[in-house]
């Protein structure tokens, strides 16, 4: 792809994100030197001083590889997504926020107004007596001040622009990032074939259980526990012990980091290939193994109550099952009254 011996151009940008993806990328260790050898940085606000105007000045397609992390939360995020799409040959939705919406997209369970209210009005550490809320334009003696518009609904990168590849994870594991970079580098420098467009890179093909060392058996779960409620028995599948683990519904690649240390998988690597809705998948799976086995003649209301009791040991099912995938799920968002 590179011509005239010039090095290919690399960009990494953060939209609505925490910066963890950048840290994970820099955490590839000595391989960062290879990255520096192979690429010229074109845009990387976290580590180098570029301006948006620099990017705007590039010819279209100037950037060979753009790792775009963060969800689309504001008009600025969306603007940058369109800009970087135009300037990049390969645009990667990098990390859970860009790929699936991640934590920012949990705001899709509520409304824009409620988010602003919480942040600017109801927050106990806040002093905002006149109830000032951010405005897109504010007149000031020096002229008009502008802020990006805060959207009602958080979107994934591929819901606003065309995306070439996805790299899952919150954040993606560094060894997986390096593997992805190697694939792209091989394509750019040696002409190796790129994977088909739309491929999920840096993840496996099966569920986290494949990488999980805990012993698994047939499952019947009479109730669920929150992590602080029990100390799990070592060596035994957490789900079987009643700790919600999204491992069975989550694609592997992370090495089952969380279950290895007694914390159920939160599902940050997203669904398996071909699965449309990760939350719905874990929901039906858990519903199948809830054990309130009845017998003929049991009172149906009693059975329903027992099912309800078991289910209500999961206090926030939407937040738990769609922890990372809300924006990309079939649900996309909750229908709330004050949407605007």
């Amino acid at each position: 792809m590179s011509t005239n011996g010039a090095k290919p151009k690399l960009a990494m940008y953060w939209a609505a994100s925490c910066g963890g993806c950048e840290i994970a990328t820099l955490n590839i260790g000595e391989h960062i030197l290879t990255v520096d050898q192979v690429f010229d940085l074109a845009f990387f606000p976290c580590i180098a001083d570029f301006k948006v105007s620099d990017v705007e000045g590039y010819p279209d397609g100037y950037i060979d590889l753009c790792l775009f992390n963060g969800a689309i939360r504001s008009s600025e995020n969306e603007h940058m997504a369109h800009l970087l799409r135009r300037k990049s040959k390969i645009l990667v939705a990098f990390g859970s926020c860009a790929y699936e919406g991640c934590i920012p997209a949990l705001a899709n369970l509520t409304s824009r107004q409620a988010v602003l209210r919480t942040v600017y009005l109801d927050n106990p550490s806040l002093d905002n007596p006149s109830g000032v809320l951010p405005q897109t334009t504010t007149p000031a003696p020096e002229g008009e001040l502008t802020l990006p518009a805060f959207y009602h609904t958080v979107k994934t990168l591929d819901q606003v622009v065309d995306v070439d590849y996805y790299v899952p994870g919150c954040p993606p594991e560094s060894h997986q990032i390096w593997a992805v970079l190697q694939t792209v580098v091989a394509a750019l420098t040696e002409g190796a074939p790129l994977p088909p467009k739309g491929t999920i890179l840096g993840a496996g093909q099966v569920a986290v259980c494949e990488e999980c060392p805990l012993a698994r058996h047939e499952k019947t779960i009479p109730r669920f526990y929150r992590p602080y409620e029990i100390v799990p028995k070592p060596g035994l599948c957490l789900l079987e012990q009643g700790l919600v683990c999204l491992g069975p519904a989550t694609v592997c690649g992370c090495g089952a980091l969380c279950p290895r240390v007694g914390m159920g998988c939160r599902g940050c690597y997203g669904p398996l290939p071909g699965v449309v809705d990760q939350g719905a998948r874990i929901l039906t799976a858990l519903a199948s193994v809830i054990d309130v086995t009845g017998k003929p003649g049991d009172n149906e209301e009693e059975l329903a109550r027992r099912v309800q009791d078991a289910v209500s040991t999961i206090p926030d099912p939407a937040g738990l099952f769609y922890y990372f995938s809300m924006a990309h799920s079939l649900l996309h968002r909750a229908r709330v009254a004050d949407n605007q």
Partner: peptide
């Protein structure tokens, strides 16, 4: 088979005992 991670969620669900691990 290549997509199955052996999580065993399905193992005791079959009303016809068709599933084995």
């Amino acid at each position: 088979a290549e997509r199955c991670s052996g999580c065993r969620i399905c193992n005791n669900l079959c009303p016809f005992n068709a599933i084995s691990f």
